[in-house]
Amino acid sequence: MSTTTLCQPTALSKQCLTAVSNLMQTHKLPTSFIDTVKDWYWPIAKQITELKQQKGQTYYLAINGSQGSGKSTMAAFLQCIFEHQFDLSVANLSIDDFYLTRKERKHLAEHIHPLLATRGVPGTHDIPLAIETLKKLSELHNNVQLVRFNKAYDDRAEKHLWDKVAAPVDIVILEGWCMGLQAQNPADLYTPINQLEQMEDSNGRWRKFVNAQLEEHYPDLFNMFDQLIMLKAPSFDCVYKWRKNQEDKLISQQSTRFTMDQAELNRFIQHYQRLTEHALESLPDYANLVIELNEQQQFVKAKGAAYDFS
């Protein structure tokens, strides 16, 4: 991939700038964040809009990023620009919305491996539901239900709380930490990479199941997308620090969402370590756009032959 510089004259309309400002306040972002919007999100949104116009039909955009990388923030601001600058309809989803219910994960934990009770890894998502939803979003439907997951209760939200959109929509955004990821070589699964795998998956059954799900079922979802953007963290150590900062913020705010102490967080993040490190190593080779982050979660460099930010 070629390295590109994101420098392009800002031409956001007054209406769009107002919407962006309101969104920054909602996300409690500093005023300096407008530079990120102008220098990064705006050029991306502009080019995707052009690609959508060329395609004619619903355009599917996937965003990959580790925990704390800012993928949901990117999705929100891209949606804002699409809607208020280009008058496009957008369905903004997270792969987290498609987690299996707690009851379904309990079944997996009892019949396959106890670690599958914890949501997150491939095999804990309802892929058929995700595919069905994304297909409906490109067809003529008055109301397409967008499933939502309630992390406070670790279960799927009740249906009356799901969002509804009129379809077809112009752009579908789906963000998630494992979006676009390919399965590992089976030989790479043999050696545990952390204490969780060593102590709770000594025979490798859990990681082999996860890898098989990623190989057999997730490509049907990933192949629906026209474009994949990756937000690339410097290392897994940074991912842990970012996730801990998120947890500390929730605790300080006395959030109603379930929070974890350091020992609980350390165990939880180990569920994601193997595939996060695999993504950092392998995904840049075939993502359409890779945006590299520094340790402060700031965008520093973009790589992507399909993009022209000059």
Rank of each mutant, 00 (worst) to 15 (best):
S282Y: 01
N92G: 11
Q57C: 07
S310K: 15
Q262M: 12
K164R: 06
Y41G: 05
Y153V: 08
S310W: 12
P122L: 03
L265V: 04
K249I: 12
L181Y: 00
I48P: 01
C16I: 00
F98K: 01
S89Y: 09
F299C: 06
V210I: 11
L51M: 15
H84N: 15
W242F: 14
M260T: 01
P122S: 05
L29A: 04
L134W: 05
L137R: 03
T259K: 07
G56K: 02
N92R: 13
N266G: 06
E215R: 09
Q298H: 15
T10K: 00
V121P: 01
Q67S: 06
G65D: 05
S310F: 15
I269Y: 00
E215Q: 15
L129W: 06
K71Y: 07
L221H: 12
L161N: 06
G304H: 08
T191V: 14
Q54N: 08
R257S: 08
G204P: 10
R148K: 07
K164D: 03
H271W: 01
Q182P: 14
N294C: 11
G180N: 11
H141L: 06
E110S: 05
K244H: 10
M199A: 08
I229C: 11
S21D: 04
Q270L: 02
A233C: 01
G68W: 02
T118P: 07
V290I: 10
F98C: 05
L228V: 13
W162E: 00
L61W: 08
L129G: 05
S235V: 05
E83K: 08
L108A: 04
F209N: 09
R105K: 12
D226G: 10
S94I: 07
E132L: 14
E110G: 02
N288P: 03
V172H: 02
P284Y: 07
N266W: 09
R274A: 06
Q227F: 15
M230I: 05
A183R: 01
R267Q: 07
S21C: 01
K14R: 15
D87A: 10
I251Q: 09
E292D: 13
A62E: 01
L17E: 03
N294F: 09
L214F: 13
F236C: 09
G56F: 06
H278K: 03
T18C: 09
F309T: 03
K14F: 13
M260P: 03
I81C: 00
H27D: 12
Q57H: 11
F309E: 02
Q47V: 08
N294H: 15
I131P: 13
L88Q: 08
S282D: 01
Y240Q: 07
F86W: 09
T26M: 11
Q85K: 11
V172T: 04
A75Y: 00
Y59G: 00
R243Q: 14
K103H: 05
M1A: 15
D220H: 15
R267F: 02
D96T: 09
D39K: 06
P192K: 08
L93S: 08
L189D: 06
V300Y: 10
L115A: 01
R102Q: 10
V90P: 02
T49D: 06
